[in-house]
Design a protein around this nucleic acid. Structure first.
Length: 490
RNA sequence: GGCCCUAUGGUCAAGCGGUCAAGACGCCGCCCUCUCACGGCGGAAACAGGAGUUCGAUUCUCCUUAGGGUCACCA
C-alpha cells in the first residue's frame, strides 16, 4: 500500500477551463490536502490534432487564481517528471512492447476505412472492433512490418468472464468482458491514447487516488484490465457526478458562460466560484455553505461526495458572489472596485469610499457597478411618472411645488455633508408639515432620474456635489413646470 | 440500440428503518426604511410509480418509468 496520498489533475490543453474540470481539480486538491498528500499537475497532450496555443497558460492561470497550488508539475518539476505526456513518449512505447511480448497486446494494421465500414455494417448493434488482427500469425505480422505498413497497438481483452472494480463513491461495478473492446494503446502516429497513457502515468507517478468525472466510469474496467496485465496495484477510483446545465444536459458552451475565465469576466470572484462548485456534488457534515479554500481542505471527505448529477445554478452563484462581496473588509472592497469606478468616471472617481459603502451591500456581480452608478455622471431627465409614488405620498404636483424652495434651501448650505444635507431636508419637511419621504422621494428622483438608486437622496446629493445638485434641480423644476398640466391637479 | 450510473421541493441538498422529512438559493408576504439593497421574521413548495422485506419504509430488494453517461487512432 502507498502510504502517501497522491492525486493528479490531468487536463488536456484544449483551450478553456470548464467549471466541470475546475471542480475535478478542486476535489483532487481537496482530497490530497485533507489527507496530507500531494497534488500533481500533469498535461495530457497526446492528441496532436487538438492542441491549442497558450492553453497551458490558461491552466496555470486558473489554478493560480483559485489558489490550487500543485506540488509537482511541468513548471515546477518534481521527482516523477516529465509532467507533460508528449515528453514521455518512449515510456509508453516501452511498456507497450512489454505487453506485446507477453502476448497481452497486438499490432493492428487495419485501415481507418476498414474500421469505418465495420461500423456501418454493425450499425445499431455492438460496434466494437472485430479483432481482425488479433490472430495474425507471426510471419504475416513481420511482412506487414517490413512493408512499413502503419499500425496501432491494441490490448487483448478477455473474451469472456467479467471485470469488477470498486469506486469510492459509486461502489462496486461489474461489467461483462464481452462489452469491452480491444482498445488502442498506441496510435499510428506513435502517440499513446489517453486510456493508456493515463494508466502508465498514474502508476509511474504513484497516484493513489484517481479522481475524474463519471463519464469515465464506463471505461474504467478497461483501465483495470491494463493494471492487471502489468501486475500493478489498482488505485482508488473516485468518480465524480457530472455537472449539468439548466436543461439537464451535460454542461457545455451552450449554457452560456461555463469556463472559469467567462465567469470571472462576468464579475464573479474566484473564491465565490470555488465555493459554489465545491458544493456541487459534495456536502459538508455541518449544515453550512460558506467555506474558504482552507476550510474546505479541513472539512472535505470523499464519503460525502454524492452520486447524482447536479445542475449548475447561476442564481446560487450570484448569492455566493454577493455574500463574498458583502463580507469583505470595506477597504478591500474599495480597492477591488476602485478601477471600475475610475473607469466609469473617465479618471479618478470622486468620493470613492462613499461609493464603496453604498455599493457593497448592493452589488451582486462586479459587472453590475457601471450601470448602477452611471446616472451620477450623466444626467437623465426623470420620467414624470416617477414622481408619482403612493407609498411615499409623492406626486409630480407635489414635486413641482416643493422643489423650487428645496433648491433655495440647499443652495444656502455652506457646508455639504451628510449631516448638513440631511438636517436641511428634514427641517424642510417639518416646516412644510410633510413626511420625510415626501421630500426625499422627489429630490432623489429629480437628481437621479431613476426609480432605484444605490443610496438615498442624501447620499446622492452628497455624491453629486452642491453645484451639480442645484443644476439638476433647476433643470427639473423647469421641466416640471412645463409639463405638469391642469389635468394633474387634484 | 447495448452496457453503466442516477432518482427527496424549480435548483443545491440533509437523511443512512420509527423525523410534524433539515438547511440554502430562488419565489411570495411582513418588519426595518429617504428608493433599492442589506438585515430580521414568516409562507408556499419534495420522498417518480408499483411490488415485496419488515411491527414499521424516503431509507433495504426487485420491476417499471424518467434522466444522464458511454460505446473514437478525443480526452
Amino acid at each position: 500500500m502507498h502510504d502517501v496520498v497522491r492525486t493528479r489533475f490531468a487536463p488536456s490543453p484544449t483551450g478553456r477551463m470548464h467549471v466541470g474540470n475546475l471542480r475535478t481539480a478542486l476535489y483532487e486538491y481537496l482530497i490530497a490536502r485533507s489527507l496530507g498528500g500531494s497534488f500533481v499537475l500533469r498535461i495530457e497532450d497526446t492528441d496532436q490534432e487538438r492542441q491549442v496555443e497558450s492553453a497551458i497558460d490558461i491552466i496555470y492561470d486558473t489554478l493560480r487564481a483559485v489558489g490550487l497550488k500543485h506540488d509537482e508539475g511541468p513548471d515546477i518539476g518534481g521527482p516523477y517528471g516529465p509532467y507533460i505526456q508528449s515528453e514521455r513518449l518512449p515510456l509508453y512505447r516501452q511498456y507497450a512492447d512489454q505487453l506485446l511480448e507477453s502476448g497481452q497486446a497486438y499490432r493492428c494494421f487495419c485501415t481507418r476505412e476498414r474500421l469505418e465500414s465495420l461500423k456501418e455494417d454493425a450499425n445499431k448493434h455492438f460496434t466494437a472492433y472485430d479483432r481482425h488482427c488479433r490472430h495474425l500469425d507471426q510471419q504475416t505480422v513481420q511482412n506487414l512490418l517490413d512493408s512499413k505498413k502503419p499500425y496501432v497497438i491494441r490490448q487483448k481483452m478477455p473474451i469472456d468472464g467479467s471485470t469488477t472494480f470498486d469506486d469510492a463513491v459509486y461502489g462496486s461495478i461489474t461489467v461483462d468482458n464481452r462489452e469491452l473492446e480491444d482498445q488502442i494503446l498506441i496510435k499510428s502516429d506513435g502517440y499513446p491514447t489517453y486510456n493508456y497513457a493515463n494508466v502508465i502515468d498514474d502508476h509511474l507517478m504513484n497516484i493513489t487516488h484517481v479522481v475524474r468525472g463519471s463519464e469515465y466510469l464506463s471505461s474504467t474496467p478497461k483501465y483495470n484490465l491494463l493494471y492487471e496485465a502489468f501486475g500493478w496495484e489498482v488505485p482508488t477510483y473516485v468518480h465524480l457526478p457530472l455537472i449539468l446545465g439548466k436543461d439537464g444536459q451535460k454542461l457545455s458552451k451552450r449554457h452560456g458562460s461555463t469556463s472559469f475565465a467567462d465567469l470571472v469576466q462576468e464579475g464573479y470572484l474566484p473564491e465565490a466560484i470555488v465555493n459554489a462548485i465545491a458544493l456541487l456534488g459534495w456536502c459538508p457534515k455541518e449544515n453550512r455553505e460558506l467555506f474558504t479554500l482552507d476550510e474546505l481542505c479541513q472539512f472535505f471527505s470523499i464519503d460525502r461526495i454524492s452520486k447524482s448529477p447536479s445542475i449548475f445554478d447561476f442564481d446560487k452563484l450570484d448569492w455566493f458572489n454577493a455574500s463574498y462581496l458583502r463580507s469583505m473588509e470595506s477597504t478591500s472592497f474599495l480597492a477591488l472596485i476602485s478601477p471600475i469606478l475610475d473607469e466609469v468616471f473617465d479618471g479618478a472617481a470622486p468620493l470613492k469610499p462613499l461609493l464603496a459603502e453604498l455599493l457593497q451591500p448592493r452589488v451582486v456581480r462586479l459587472t453590475d457597478i457601471p450601470h448602477m452608478i452611471h446616472f451620477l455622471r450623466n444626467r437623465q431627465s426623470a420620467d414624470l411618472s416617477l414622481y408619482d409614488h403612493k407609498k411615499a405620498k409623492s406626486s409630480r404636483m407635489l414635486a413641482g411645488e416643493i422643489l423650487p424652495e428645496l433648491k433655495e434651501r440647499l443652495s444656502g448650505l455652506t457646508e455639504w455633508t451628510r449631516e448638513s444635507i440631511h438636517d436641511c431636508l428634514t427641517r424642510f419637511a417639518e416646516d412644510r408639515a410633510l413626511k420625510t419621504g415626501q421630500v426625499m422621494w422627489p429630490l432623489r428622483i429629480s437628481l437621479s432620474g431613476q426609480a432605484v438608486t444605490p443610496g438615498g437622496a442624501v447620499e446622492i446629493a452628497l455624491l453629486l456635489g452642491q453645484q451639480e445638485v442645484l443644476a439638476r434641480l433647476s433643470e427639473d423644476i423647469e421641466h416640471l413646470s412645463q409639463n405638469v398640466t391642469e389635468e394633474d391637479m387634484p
